[in-house]
């Protein structure tokens, strides 16, 4: 899994937002916001990662149970897949 390369993650006034550049900018719906752990997962996915790798990355960064991490990753992947931001 990898996020589409023409999207940019940036913190704007305390809020993580993902915005499209180039042709992708035609669709306003392609802009989403993320919380801190979402932004962390996004950065990890920019280099490409499997769902398992995301879970272990999350466990390395945050003090959460594996169960919580797994659910968090699942939610995150679902959210960006729905927004059509995955390049898979």
């Amino acid at each position: 899994m990898k996020v589409k390369s023409d999207f940019v993650l940036k913190e704007v006034a305390g809020q993580w937002i993902v915005a499209p550049s180039g042709d992708a900018s035609i669709s306003f719906n392609a802009m989403i916001t993320l919380n801190d752990s979402g932004a962390f997962l996004w950065k990890t996915l920019e280099g490409g990662a499997s769902e398992e790798e995301l879970v272990s990355a999350l466990l390395g960064e945050y003090e959460v149970s594996e169960e919580t991490a797994r659910a968090g990753v699942r939610n995150f992947v679902e959210k960006i897949r729905e927004a059509n931001l995955l390049d898979d």
Binding site: D6, V8, K10, A19, P20, S21, G22, D23, S25
Partner: peptide, 10 residues
């Protein structure tokens, strides 16, 4: 006008 390339969008 949203820039067409990532560097300028940032």
């Amino acid at each position: 006008i949203r820039p067409g390339d990532k560097k300028r969008l940032v």
